[in-house]
Nucleic acid binder design. Structure first.
Lengths: 334, 334
DNA sequence: GACCCCTGTCGAAGCGCTTCGACGAAGGAA
DNA sequence: TTCCTTCGTCGAAGCGCTTCGACAGGGGTC
């Protein structure tokens, strides 16, 4: 193993100079810096992570807590994770994977052992049991998602309320008068995950404002056909739906087709989901992007600022961005 | 922060004694050990990960390289990952998440900086470009999946060849004479991922042995309907299919239903996939389990043995385990 | 010219832990 | 009784890095 003293000897300087040349924490002459860099390259030097963490009181690792529960859409979670890892690497950090199963203990452990120096927590519930811990733990933390009381925490997420509104308003502009929201599975509402409820609020508020008739349907994975039939039965005037359930989007569009409803001629469909998903459905879906890449990136960047000691806003709501595709059109008055 | 010297003082022993009491590397009297444990509990001591890594030359972290490419089934990947994390924790290790995007450089980096002390690599291709590196890197490594030449590497996976055979043999026992394999998307074959090809080999060999007519169809996600129609057109005597494509299983069964084929009355369906998936389809599918939990667990355990210096077998093939469900039945002679 | 202040570098201390060698006490073998 | 082990513990060294204080030299300023 090549160490800093080897580099120092080769470059004809002291180890501390090598360290400063690397970190830039003290001025080093251009010429010396060059010699140090050459030596590093020639020897293939890589600082020892443990030694660095011990002396520098920074591990350059951050922990990502991923959810594993019923009702979550795994590919979406993975998109967040990949974005977090990629962004973290750009900031010279690595990512430790924690499962939600480890719970609060896991957080305490990685904090106490100084294994990581910051935390990203996904899938936060309105009254998440980990919140008190996160407030006392003095590790910089960013939540992806909003709890009921985000005071004193840094949160980032899509503005789901506005996203729900945007979908309805889009349908309103197209002349639709009766809309339905196909939501997440019931268990997501039961455990009071914020984003699901926020969509409902935005959806309902916007529909009421526009004087539309509306209904909300939490929906299990696999129940596409049932829900489609129920919708036609109970809300015959329906011409617009908003889908906020990744797993159900494709099957639901298929079910409508099977029931003889043409999209968008008979029914306009919008969704809140990642773009890739919206584009991969049989009829490309007009959607509000779930900006996984952007949210993951923002989360890491907020964390980096906090590690620098810079103040950051408590809440970052990414505004909805709607992309019109083939699944929506003007209401055709029969 | 409470450190080992604090514990030592409180317990009335030297720091080295605390260390030995913790690691068990030297005999410590029962009474002393008790005092040390009490002190640890009272003070809430947690050893500093960096210091431990530096002095002990072990970080107790292992790296998991996850694939992110087209054609992979993300929930399945996630199952492996969760199993790896869970098992690693049981062995007092944490897991660092690396994306395949980082490639060989990422592996070199975490190895050189001593950030991790072992590697798990998923989604290995037959001629994976990372293999030479993995062979020279002197980090204990386990591959999930088999390359073309696994010599000198430790690999673990489901025995996909036997899995393909098992499916066909099951159908043969039920009297079926004409079978088809619905495989992974073409890109998976193009990049020569081993497991896909092994299934094809097993499938074909078993069909030939039984004198069945057979065909193989790599298949895109979303092409369920097309493939179902093609099958009926080109292979009218078909009564048994094997599905080795997680994303397609549900849609395919739906497509058969739409085409008027009853499962299992007209068509027996078997699959190679995680049990949860087989059970969540409209008709529960007779399947060979993709034992993600077991494979992840084995991978970690092999790694732990290698870290101990114990020799381990180069290849671990998990034998297929078939569960009969509602989707298969005797061929009904028309 | 005296003073101060940068700039660029060095040496040494120390981060919190593990491990090695040493050593007293106790027990067995001779 | 003497000598050799083994058990249980301690002190010190050292893992590879960062950082602090010190200091030499070269300008400015007055």
């Amino acid at each position: 193993m090549v160490k800093i003293t080897d580099v120092a000897r080769r470059a004809g300087v002291s180890p501390s100079t090598v360290s400063y040349a690397l970190s830039g924490k003290r001025p080093i002459s251009e010429e010396t810096r060059q010699r140090v860099e050459d030596a590093i390259r020639e020897l293939g030097y890589r600082p020892h992570a443990g030694a660095r963490a011990l002396a520098g009181r920074r591990s350059n690792v951050l922990a990502l807590v991923v959810p594993l529960r019923a009702g979550i859409h795994v590919p979406t979670v993975m998109r967040f994770a990949v974005s977090v890892v990629t962004t973290a690497r750009r900031h010279d950090h690595d990512v430790l994977l924690l499962t939600q199963e480890e719970g609060a203990d896991g957080l305490t452990r990685v904090a106490d052992t100084a294994l990581v120096d910051a935390l990203i927590v996904m899938d936060v519930q309105l009254d998440d049991p980990r919140l008190p811990l996160l407030r006392t733990l003095d590790l910089p933390t960013v939540l992806i998602g909003f709890p009921a009381s985000p005071q004193g925490l840094t949160c980032v997420d899509l503005d789901f309320r506005a996203a729900g509104e945007a979908c309805v308003e889009h349908l309103a502009r197209l002349g639709h008068r009766s809309v339905a929201l196909i939501g997440s599975p019931p268990e997501v509402y039961v455990r009071r995950t914020a984003f699901a409820q926020r969509v409902v609020q935005g959806f309902t508020a916007a529909a009421d404002r526009s004087g539309m008739s509306s209904s909300v349907h939490p929906c299990e994975t696999g129940a596409a056909r049932e829900v489609a039939e129920q919708l036609l039965r109970e809300q015959p005037a329906l011409t617009g739906v908003v889908v906020h359930n990744e797993a159900l989007l494709g099957p639901l569009v298929d079910a409508f087709a099977d029931l003889g409803l043409r999209v968008p001629a008979d029914l306009s469909v919008t969704a809140i989901c990642p773009d890739e998903l919206a584009e991969s459905v049989r009829v490309p879906i007009t959607s509000v992007t779930l900006p996984t890449a952007e949210v993951g990136e923002r989360a890491v960047e907020l964390l980096m600022k906090k590690l620098d000691g810079t103040a950051v806003p408590e809440s970052t709501l990414v505004p909805p961005r709607m992309t019109e595709r083939a699944s929506t059109g003007r209401r055709t008055v029969p």
